[in-house]
């Protein structure tokens, strides 16, 4: 059963498991959270499966008897999406950025198929593709619970429709895809210059703590570790390309020892290396 961890007064997170999706962790590798206001609750991200969504709702109900009014999905990764059915079945609207919703419609049927194979029918029972009840385009403030919450969109950054959520009362920032802690961030869907620009803008916000998409909550300085990883990765891949290392040699030469203790270094980092190498190679063809 997911355990809520209190981050600030009325602000909680659920910490996802480390490592790859597997039957032991039920694919529950992403964080989720919720904010309790005067009159209700806003949930942030919905988990990996219908059952995960049910478990999150049950855990929220043990903290407060106030009703959940809204579920916000921060970005298009399976571990944040597919619990939405549990919320929608209770009439709780699910909100997403339009581009996040489109990305989900374009590719997540496959993610779901893969998840079913990895976790089995029982774990994924009742889990289905969905269309969000609310789609939005720009940053905006919501207040369905007597506590103002800012939904922040930085353009296509870590992903095309990635948003972050700021609880203005406590200064807790749910970073979604923008920040991971002690976990390799995934560059697959990103526009890296825009992502770095968004990270650069975060210190100007009145933040007291960050709940990352993956890994434990931390101080606002978490942003710097993600920036460092992204810039080191790009610099290293540019060096490999410059030195004539072929794509087949990238995995062997990808090491960034400063980040080797981060979760998913053996998987996501290697994929990131290939992706950035190929992007730089493509850019070099157009010079």
């Amino acid at each position: 059963m997911p355990e809520p961890l209190q981050v600030a007064d009325g602000v909680y997170m659920f910490l996802g498991a480390k490592g790859e999706v597997d039957p032991a962790n039920l694919g529950r590798i992403g964080n989720a959270g919720f904010i309790v206001g005067e009159s209700g609750v806003v949930a942030i991200d919905t988990g990996t499966s219908r059952q995960h969504g049910e478990d999150l709702l049950a855990a929220i109900a043990r903290v407060t008897d106030k009703p959940v009014r809204l579920a916000l999905i921060t970005h298009t990764r399976q571990e944040f999406l597919f619990g939405a059915g549990a919320f929608r079945a209770r009439g709780i609207p699910v909100a997403m950025h339009r581009r996040a919703a489109n990305l989900m419609a374009a590719r997540c049927e496959n993610c779901l198929k893969t998840l079913r194979r990895q976790l089995g029918e029982t774990a994924m029972s009742g889990t289905a593709m969905f269309k969000p009840d609310i789609e939005f385009e720009a940053s905006h403030t919501i207040d369905p619970i007597g506590r103002p919450i800012e939904v922040l969109y930085f353009g296509h950054s870590s992903g095309p429709g990635d948003v972050a959520v700021l609880d203005t009362r406590s200064g807790v920032f749910f970073a979604g895809g923008l920040v991971d802690n002690q976990r390799i961030p995934d560059v697959q869907d990103s526009d890296r210059p825009a992502w770095l620009a968004a990270l650069g803008a975060l210190p100007r916000l009145p933040l007291t703590a960050i709940v990352p998409g993956h890994g434990p909550a931390g101080p606002p300085g978490l942003v710097d570790s993600v920036r460092r990883y992204l810039t080191d990765l790009e610099r290293h891949m540019a060096e490999l390309l410059q030195a004539g290392v072929p794509l087949s040699g990238v995995a062997e030469a990808a090491a960034l020892p400063a980040f080797s203790h981060w979760d998913r270094y053996d998987s996501i980092h290697l994929r990131n290396a290939s992706i950035v190498y190929l992007q730089l190679e493509r850019e070099s063809m157009f010079k």
Binding site: E3, L15, A17, G19, L119, G120, P216, A217, D263
Partner: peptide, 26 residues
């Protein structure tokens, strides 16, 4: 905040130990 961070990091490490003995399947 300090104790909170320690708590979440401990939870994180605990999960990692669980993950290590998990059988990959599917």
């Amino acid at each position: 905040r300090h104790r909170l961070l320690l708590a979440t990091i401990a939870a994180w490490l605990g999960m990692s130990a669980l993950g290590a003995i998990a059988q990959v399947g599917g």
